[in-house]
Design a protein around this nucleic acid. Structure first.
Lengths: 241, 241
DNA sequence: CGCGCAATTGATTGATGTCAATTGGAGTGG
DNA sequence: CCACTCCAATTGACATCAATCAATTGCGCG
């Protein structure tokens, strides 16, 4: 059991890994770092020489506009290789921050290149993970652009439930959701007040229960139907890639 | 001069290509297809065995919601390797359609894998292109979520100007923009009527001129300042990747 | 000429944002 | 242990932006 367990678990949901590949991943040199809630894992405009993998805690990509407003463009959960982007992107156009206390592993780019070179198949799976991030972002675009606030919020909850289940972080119908409403507002692109009212709407309809940092979905089917959620885009399906 | 000229041009904005790499790309086996305005290049739920590169015309990724509403989640211009996603994603969660008459090259996946195997560097540049698509999507999320409609529209125009300039498709301050207002509404996540009013707003302020399928930006600096546009995320900068 | 659709406009409705105030819980220092 | 502070959560009143409904104009094409 290494820091890479959640990552291996996530990858195993998408394709079969050979023992060699597991060892290649587990053997990646890394620097393990605790980041407190609110801290930055990767800063805007920086040029990281390492990519960062979160294996405990929630993180988010954030952008600030000149008005001072913030938009969160992605949420990452344990097992997500959060910063593969920097490997090819070189310069960060946004920052990655800890939404809760986190533990992250920083892997030097040359280590990644070495592993990809040895196993092009692993390379494709890493590529896949950035492509799925993009698919999630497309779902967010559709959510902000065309869904009602209740549908959008419901869709997000479904998405997180599926992603967390894949890494074993759900407990029946519940999962830890260490997010505040102001943060949720920056995720959904809504005002704080409206987020609060939308939450109450879903609660009143019995679709979610959210108390003390734990979110419960009593009727995932019903929530998915209401939010028009189809998990295909998350690609949590094993096949040769 | 092959169908891959715009692609090579785009890649050359991001890193130096060797002659061997140019030949590898130019030698890719492909099937060239004309797609009329409105036609589909890649269909939702399909499992393409080829990836598709557009070298003439505009295309868009689109998603339909159960309400029947459409959201466009990305626009692609000539030179964009539109469907590299399918190489690792396997099943499409959205479709790609032609916004104008298009000419596209379909390249079999095994061909791509062969080229990537021969040149891991080209592989990384292909990866990069999907990562930049994601960066553009993040900019769209911030645009829909937190910008005013005028800023959002202005930002989009700046983005397209920069991307088209990179492939030589601008003519001074103008470029062909074969899009209708209803389409623009699905791009921006706004209603048709509001798009029209937002356009008039920008016109009245002298920031854009749009007539007969040609869009002119008399004052790119001014538009960029208004829209809080920073081209960093487009990564149109040569460096070793 | 007449059809279909893009573009435009006005009037109205509805959703969401803003402002302002209150409540409640967690942590801090006396 | 108690004030005190900070901030999340909640609520109400109101303002504003954007959607909707409905008509009209204008253009390209058969």
């Amino acid at each position: 059991m290494t820091e890479f367990e959640p990552l291996l678990r996530m990858l195993s949901h998408r394709d079969v890994l050979s023992d060699d590949e597991r060892e290649l991943v587990s053997g990646l040199k890394r620097r393990v770092v605790r980041v407190p809630k609110g801290g930055a894992l990767v800063a805007t405009h920086s040029r990281p020489g390492e990519s960062c993998l979160v294996f405990q805690g929630f993180t988010a990509r954030e952008v600030f506009l000149k008005s001072g407003e913030r938009q969160i463009t992605a949420i990452h959960v344990p097992g997500d290789f959060v910063d593969l982007h920097a490997l090819t992107l070189k310069t960060m156009d946004h920052s990655v921050v800890a939404l809760s206390d986190c533990v992250a592993a920083f892997v030097p780019h040359h280590e990644l290149l070495r592993v990809i070179d040895k196993s092009p198949h692993l390379g494709r799976l890493f590529w896949l993970s950035t492509v799925i991030d993009a698919a999630i972002q497309r779902a967010w675009i559709a959510g902000i652009g065309r869904r009602s606030s209740a549908e959008h919020l419901g869709h997000l909850v479904c998405e997180l439930y599926c992603r967390l289940e894949a890494v074993g972080l759900t407990d029946g119908q519940s999962f830890r959701f260490p997010i505040t409403q102001p943060e949720l507002a920056d995720i959904l692109g809504l005002s704080l007040v409206h987020v609060n009212r939308t939450l109450q709407d879903l609660r009143r309809r019995g679709l979610i229960v959210w108390k003390g940092g734990t979110l419960t979905v009593p009727d995932l089917e019903g929530l998915a139907a209401m939010a028009d959620f189809d998990p295909t885009y998350l690609n949590l399906v094993v096949e040769p890639r």
